[in-house]
Write a protein that binds this DNA or RNA. Structure first.
Ligand SMILES: [Mn+2]
Ligand SMILES: [Mn+2]
Ligand SMILES: [Zn+2]
Ligand SMILES: [Zn+2]
Lengths: 143, 143
DNA sequence: GCAATAATTAGAATAATTCTAAAAAAGGGC
DNA sequence: GCCCTTTTTTAGAATTATTCTAATTATTGC
């Protein structure tokens, strides 16, 4: 429910830089995401956000999430047709979706691997982003 | 609008193998996907399918697509929150989404690269599938 | 051909997300 | 601190892709 000053500064700077205002809702949503980094859906963010801010609306949760994405403070993660999930980890990483437990785990990716993925693109293609999603069974769910 | 005998055989075998019946709708949808391999959405498949089979319903298009996916004759492709797209290319490949033109291009991936992606998973994780989606600018849309 | 089973169909229902327009809050100048 | 302008929040309606439902139709094995 409270944003460490380091993150508060990061948020304010990013908002300022994009000409948007700092509000307690934006701050709160950011803190909710940082607190439990388990890739919650918008509904889950909404439920958690209401604990510390009962009057916040779902529309605002969506608005804040979008603002945080626009300002590159978080990213969104999609698995097939499932509801979008949100992730405050800004490092190069892929996502592993466990079909058993439903858990989503960050998989750190060496820069070199990203480089190889870029290298495999045909002449004339340039990618600004690569999205990598594994699915299978995580360590907790193995026999 | 017509399914090459090679594909017809593949379809029939896959359906038989999963205990499902061969129907003209399933055959038709499969042929629509094979004919123009541009990753159409369900709506686009529906529009194309009606040209040769005006009485087909959208529900059937969805049903057939699901059957084809279940029997591994096609795969589905998702980009962020966009409608699901369908792809009859069963080789190891990633998808490149051009932000400019909206085009979706298959990117063939060497097995070795898939191997490296698997190797990067932590101990105890096993993935049955990796989904790789690039986005950026394709060759046609470059300056 | 006939019964049993599976597939197709139209339309209703669902669910995540986006939109709308009114009310509230922020920030800058005084 | 107060006023004005602009931005943000809010509740609820609207949208859109997809799934569900229940009735009709087609397929298969006998
Ligand atoms: Mn993540
Ligand atoms: Mn493809
Ligand atoms: Zn698991
Ligand atoms: Zn392009």
């Amino acid at each position: 429910m409270n944003l460490a000053p380091e993150y508060k500064a990061r948020l304010d700077e990013a908002l300022e830089h994009s000409g948007q205002r700092s509000t307690k809702q934006r701050e709160h949503i950011f803190s909710v995401l940082l607190e439990k980094r388990d890739h919650p859906t918008a509904d889950e963010v909404y439920a958690r956000a209401r604990e510390g801010m009962p009057s916040i609306s779902l529309a605002t949760v969506y608005n804040c999430l979008e603002t945080l994405i626009e300002t590159s403070l978080i990213r969104q993660v999609n698995f097939e047709r499932e509801p979008t999930r949100y992730c405050p980890n800004l490092t190069n990483h892929a996502h592993f979706y466990c079909r058993e437990s439903g858990e989503i785990v960050d998989i750190e990716l060496p820069d070199e691997l990203i480089g190889q993925l870029m290298a495999v693109l045909p002449e004339g293609f340039s990618a600004s982003h690569i999205d990598i999603a594994y699915d299978g069974k995580c360590n907790c769910c193995h026999d």
